[in-house]
Design a binder for these strands. Sequence first.
RNA 1: GCCCGGAUAGCCCAACGGCAGAGGCAAUCGACUCAAAAUCGAUUCAGUGCGGGUUCGAAUCCCGCUCCGGGUACCA
Length: 827
Amino acid sequence: MSIEYRYDPEEIEPRWQQVWADEKTWEVSNDVEGREKSYVLEMLPYPSGEPHIGHLKVYSVGDAVAHFHRRTGRHVLHPMGYDAFGLPAENNAIKTGVHPRDSTAKSIASFQRQFRRWGISIDWSRELATCEPDYYRWTQWIFLQLFHAGLAYRKAATVNWDPVEETVLANEQVVDGRGERSGALVEVRHLEQWFFRITDYADRLVDDLEVIDWPEHVKTMQRNWIGRSEGAEVVFRCEDLAVDYPVFTTRPDTLFGATFFVLAPEHPDIERLTAGTGHEDEVREYVNRALTSDKEDRGNAERTKTGVPLGRTVTNPVNGEHIPMFVADYVLMEYGTGAVMAVPGHDQRDYDFAQVFGLPVRRVVEGLNADGDDEGLPYTGPGVLVNSHPDFDGLDKTAALDAIVRWLDREGKGQASTNYRLRDWLLSRQRYWGCPIPIVHCAACGVIPVPEDQLPVVLPDVEDYKPKGQSPLAAATDWVNTTCPRCDAPAKRETDTMDTFVDSSWYFLLYCDAQNDEAAWDPEILKRWAPVDQYIGGVEHAILHLLYARFFIKALADLGHLDVQEPFAKLFTQGMVLKDGEKMSKSRGNVVSPQEIVETHGADTARTYVLFIAPPDQNADWEEKGVDGVHRFLSRLWRLSAAAADGPGAGAEQPDVESLAEADVELLRKAHWAIDKVTNDMAGRFNFNTAIAAVMELTNDVSRAVNERGDAEPQAVRFALATAASLLFPFAPHVATDAYAKLTGDRLWEQPWPAADSELLERDTVEIVFQVNGKVRDRATVPAGASKDELEALALASPKVAAFTDGKTIAKVIVVPGKLVNVAVRG
RNA sequence: GCCCGGAUAGCCCAACGGCAGAGGCAAUCGACUCAAAAUCGAUUCAGUGCGGGUUCGAAUCCCGCUCCGGGUACCA
């Protein structure tokens, strides 16, 4: 039985894939009645070129979960689609002239091929691509629902313009002042654009993070991004101009420490305020410089503070002090009111500014063990109010905060207020390859939505994809020129397209009712599947996609189209696959191609290896040699199974324990231990690496039983091997199925997940460790049920223990039944 | 700067507060072979980043650092 059994994934894998394809094994009906449903979803891929190793990892993780859920009796929805609109395909079109539709279709075909080749269990009947009119028709429909609800609107605003991509970007797509994709410094432009009113949902988006089972760091990132700050709005009045300037502050308790007042350079009142003060030229020059300097430089907190006085004062509402006004670029127009009260004693930035301009610094909060001088300013810790007002001095700062806000409210000079960092989602793009915005501009009627029965507004073909400051669609005059849906007069179509994140904010809903031509979905069917029970993807989408999708679901729920509040009940973020500790990239030349691994080692090896190298939520380093090791393991399992199947015995029923030799019982025990271990690893934190290691252990034990011992009971071997195959199935479905079929003739994917026999998990005897002062000195095999007293007596009777306790006082004996006895001695 | 992760053998990684080693890689040796591949077997290797503390007992809990990775940052 040596060379005749050769593990041949090239033969095994296509054979089973054919069965699954022919029988449409992974397709599910929407009839969920009476069964627990499970919606397992990995983030849909952006089809560009060929799948990379990250795709192999995410779909291997998702497939393992889907298989485990199926075999534990759940009705599993596990679909696939493509996020097919977007800039890379369009930029490629500009360069090569190939229509984005064609390059995208080509890439989709290669993704489909790979997913089949990898044996991922996908319900292909629900496949979608966001660039298909069948799909984006409903993207447009959703846009219209949001438009009618006032949640999609058009306004002129200061926006981020990417000069390389020649389009505006959402705040979320600007990283360190640069376009996320192009890396170009973003310019500020004042343009009329389309927005989604995501800020209306800021509170719910923060609060509902409590009810979803997501990694804490992702929740934290969303919280930080939304940036909810509780505080107060306080009105400072400029008496000279008789104008009120409200400011937002999170520290109204420090109001008595305000010694100056600062406006952002963009503040619209600056010119008015300076007029007639003699500071006009200086201010104008400063503002011009501030507005033209780039965002990155301005955002640098390390830079020395700059600014100029406006020559005016405002009145502090709590104490009537007149404090000087400045313009300075450390104050941002986008946040709060574009004006701040400066409290240099208790804010680092205000302090820095005060130092540069020689402004007074006043302590109004004293730490509990401070000595009252101005050392240690600015001070932001806990403490009590001082130098403020008899009504507030001595109060703890949190109590003082409340008291001062109440006082402001009574006096009509301010009120409690909440501010957010989150801005509305800018969704329009001046680019071609995206979902057209279903809007018509009519000279008489204004902005008019396209009626729902005229959807989809189909993306027309154009000659030239190059953006020219406006969407290339503007050149498609036949398409642009239309009639107004309301008055029938000549009108023009909106030529901007939607951000691709709009497409991916709802795709998981369409899968639930994929064959519906009448509506985006049937709410009754959606109810059966939503929400996604387990969502899996990269952490790079922690803010963008995952926040947008949550907003869409809440808005659509409010409009009565669905009845869940959160799209993804559980989230798992998988780590990256690295090579030699570095990200794989073409420029580094260290890219490992999953296609190549699959061709040389088989899909099962590639999938199992990527899950074996490290816990899936961690980054993992890809090592060619490690792949060989996993291949050896699969090969060994298959070979042993094939040989056992041809040997004596039948099927894989567990033999009667009573009739077996102790060594064979030990093998059964190992199998049940592995069932227990793998089941826990699957159900808990997705510790696939240790689950796979457990199956390796079991397989190694079988190997030893067969090769070394030679007299292993064939039925025990069959049972152990079938169990190993069964447990390995979620990771390496082909080889597991083949080995299992050889042993039993049955189809593994139709078998229930094995259950561990708790009686076999327990042993009659256990090894107990005897310690002296925590150091192991002896060990003994004792009956599993031995009492504490018995164990203590045994330990103290041990000569090896006695050697370390002789002549010393025994202070304490700790007995942990089933584990150890620790004798603590003194002297 | 702030917020999360992480640091265990030559490498990837395990270890409910209880014997530091499950698994894999690499290395060395051996069996099989005319030989090689494949296969099988055996062996070597760290006291857990550093310094304190709690405990009968700490890789694990607490405090203070260092290094690496990620996120975020004049957000008032």
